[in-house]
Design a protein around this nucleic acid. Structure first.
Lengths: 132, 132
DNA sequence: GCTTGAACCTCTAGTTACTAGAGCTTGTAT
DNA sequence: ATACAAGCTCTAGTAACTAGAGGTTCAAGC
């Protein structure tokens, strides 16, 4: 199976300029070209793009994905390096969740303090002005 | 009290280039200048920068902060517009938390599936290759 | 074989919220 | 008077794309 960039785009739900961008930064190998200079992709490249998109959906950065791809390509890697990348990322995600929960609480407090007292000005601005 | 940009920076914990950047995009008014063209700030501007930093710490975007500042400056605003901005932001934050929790689960599943079976290759890469 | 139009090409610039560096000038303390 | 920290402007870089201009190629229908 050979894909044009548009077909690959449909297959992987990845926008055409994004595919070109991935090639540009070396995340995807340079595609073969048709006689008229248009990109042609193999099933393998299609699978790699699926891998990239799936990883992105899980929040891995392009840099992390580069590492994961390298681990895939290099046969002699330690069995647990990919595991480490994933675990590191999991820690990041948990950190972000904690931060956002704190934030959620602060916003709630701010908004609630305002609901109590409908007759006055909204206190949101006031509370943002307080030096914490 | 009159501040140089460095003093303002210390006072607000906001880096010097960031202050200049806020001026450039119109989030802070243009500062007065000394005879030698250096920026001089008043206590009012210092308070405004505190407001901006506090809002940023709560995750408001610069655009949202612009709206909030406009609401402060404009005396004739609806008492609850700031409330709305905050509530909208709260919804965003909650959304992000939900997404990250889903992600956390997927990562956990991936990593755990690998721990079960230590003798084989790490399954992280394999599971990223599966088309979900 | 010719025409049409969708899909392709490259290149540049924009997005968000800053950060870093070059090369020069000003302020202040001794 | 001098030294040097702190200031100035301008340009470019970060992450991960997205959008548009202006031109070319492919594939289908006649």
């Amino acid at each position: 199976m050979v894909y044009s960039i548009g077909q690959l785009s449909k297959e992987t739900q990845c926008k055409v300029p994004t595919i070109r961008y991935y090639e540009e930064i070396g995340l995807l190998d340079k595609a073969q070209r048709s006689a008229g200079n248009q990109r042609r992709y193999t099933s393998q490249q299609c699978q790699r793009l699926h891998f990239i998109r799936h990883s992105r959906a899980l929040g891995f950065s392009l840099d992390e994905i580069k590492q994961l791809i390298h681990l895939q390509d290099c046969q002699h890697h330690d069995a647990h390096q990919a595991h480490d990348v994933a675990q590191h990322h999991l820690a990041d995600v948990r950190n972000k969740i904690e931060q956002l929960k704190t934030l959620e609480q602060q916003l709630l407090t701010m908004i609630d303090s305002c609901d109590v007292d409908e007759t006055e000005d909204c206190l949101v601005l006031k509370s943002l002005n307080e030096v914490s």
